[in-house]
Design a protein around this nucleic acid. Structure first.
Length: 427
RNA sequence: GUGGGCGUAGCUCAGUUGGUUAGAGCGCCGGAUUGUGGUUCCGGAGGUCGCCGGUUCAAUUCCGGUCGUCCACCCCA
């Protein structure tokens, strides 16, 4: 051993069994829900070519890439998000696949930045995507899955909500209130962070960076404070392009309403999403108390497959990380207590019975039961303690008497009752 | 990347106004108990007081640096 202590890298997590159990609990819920919607699981490599991200994901992501040069002189990066990999995987083969393609994954993702609450250098993210379907029903399906993923973990509409918007709708609205086409990008940028800015600062940016006039700013403020589609329709719906976008957006929310998920969904035009590749409906899931960062974010990205060199395919999906979600679950007391559990624990009283115990243990294992026993010769007390520690439901005791009689003492560890049973009954 | 809090046993923490052998609870190991667990009792192991340097007769304690961690900011898939 070196005298220097080996520690884990900053921002990375260990998963001893208690923590691994929590991770499995979350991932199990994700997997069940995805399968319930008919989605197929896939994965890709954790290490990708740097090029996959530098032009497609936007500067924010590239600045936080966990990247390096490998021994083959290749510029590589640990994947910071899954969508580019998905696009790459599908780029070549999607042409021959029946549509829509409904895939999900739970990749471990990486970024290089200082760790803080809800953000580490590594996390697991549930990714769910529908490729090859431009209908708004696909958008609704994807949001429904995200919501159900949280419902599956015991969260309700009292705990979280989806804030939804549509970049196409927002574009039409901005053009409608007089924002010039060349200023759209900058305006989006300011809207994206408007919640985090003081009001004066936001207005200043809208004038200086987005080139907006005062009247436009007033209209924009009214827009962004709208939480009901009806209000937006009344105020801005005369514009034919806006009306068209509103129609689709209403279909979207109506579908979620029909599913019974209406109470989870709120219009919020301030949701833009930082990622460069989103093209349509976008959404984020937040805890109601707003203590935490976004639990989940997603939307439509119809251009991405084309950008990575594949066939153009409409696409919509989301990513949900395990770190923020884990904190919310802990806060809500929705993480089940970790317990070991075992069907049977065998006790050999004197050591003479060890061969018979091994034989019985293996018969039970062949039948599919979980079975353990002491791995060294110890007194019965010790073995019973071990049985309790491992969470045994039933202890099977074989001593000299049982060995002679061909029986086994069956002890129910919950009730404490025990009875003698012929060993053959377990065969 | 910037600023601040914190770093003492496996875990949660106490303590030392600078002074000999640094403590508790929980956990772990052993025993009470050579055919019976979860309770109880007794005993034990486990610490270079994060690391490096400075001040001092003497540093776990004061000072500086560094690393780690947490929080906030920047940013946010």
């Amino acid at each position: 051993m070196s005298d220097k202590e080996l520690t884990k890298l900053p921002g990375f997590r260990d998963f001893p069994p208690e923590d691994f159990a929590r991770r499995s609990y979350i991932q199990g819920a994700w997997r069940r829900v995805a399968q319930r919607y008919g989605f197929q699981e896939y994965d890709g490599p954790p290490l990708e070519s740097l090029d996959l991200y530098v032009e497609k994901s936007g500067d924010e992501i590239v600045g936080q890439l966990y990247n390096f040069v490998d021994k083959g002189d290749r510029d590589v990066a640990l994947r910071p998000e899954m969508t580019p990999s998905l696009a790459r995987i599908l780029a070549k083969r999607s042409r021959g696949m029946s549509k829509p393609i409904k895939w999900f994954s739970m990749p471990q993702l990486f970024r290089y930045e200082r760790a803080q609450r809800g953000r580490l250098r590594e996390h697991f993210q549930w990714n769910v995507d529908i490729i090859g379907e431009s209908s708004v029903a696909a958008d609704a399906e994807v949001l429904a899955i995200a919501i159900d993923g949280l419902r599956e973990l015991g969260l309700t509409d009292k705990d979280f909500a989806a804030r939804v918007s549509d970049r196409r709708l927002l574009t039409a609205l901005l053009l409608g209130i007089g924002v010039r086409e060349e200023n759209l990008g900058a305006t989006f940028g300011v809207i994206d962070k408007i919640e985090r800015l003081p009001a004066e600062k936001a207005e200043q940016l809208l004038v200086e960076e987005a080139g907006l006039e005062n009247t436009e700013i007033e209209a924009l403020k009214s827009l962004l404070s709208s939480t009901r589609i009806d209000d937006v329709t009344r105020e801005f719906g005369d514009d034919s392009r806006v009306a068209e976008e509103l129609h689709r957006f209403r279909q979207y929310t109506d579908m979620l309403e029909s599913m019974g998920l209406g109470d989870f969904v709120e219009l919020d035009l301030r949701i833009v999403r930082g990622l460069a590749y989103y093209t349509g409906i976008v959404f984020e899931l937040f805890d109601r108390k707003r203590d935490l960062r976004a639990i989940c974010g997603g939307g439509r990205y119809d251009r991405l497959l084309e950008l990575v060199g594949g066939d153009p395919q409409p696409a919509v999906g989301f990513g949900m990380g395990d770190v923020v979600l884990g904190e919310l679950l802990k806060e809500m007391n929705l993480v089940p207590e970790y317990e070991r559990s075992l069907d049977y624990f065998l006790v050999a009283v004197s050591g003479e019975e060890y061969p018979a115990a091994l034989r019985l243990a293996h018969q039970l294992r062949d039948q599919g039961h979980s079975v353990a026993y002491g791995l060294r010769q110890q007194g019965v007390t010790k073995q019973m303690k071990a049985a309790a520690r491992e969470g045994a439901n039933t202890v099977l005791i074989i001593g000299p008497d049982e060995l002679a009689n061909g029986t086994v003492l069956v002890r129910d560890m919950t009730s404490g009752e025990q009875r003698e049973v012929q060993r053959q009954e377990f065969e």
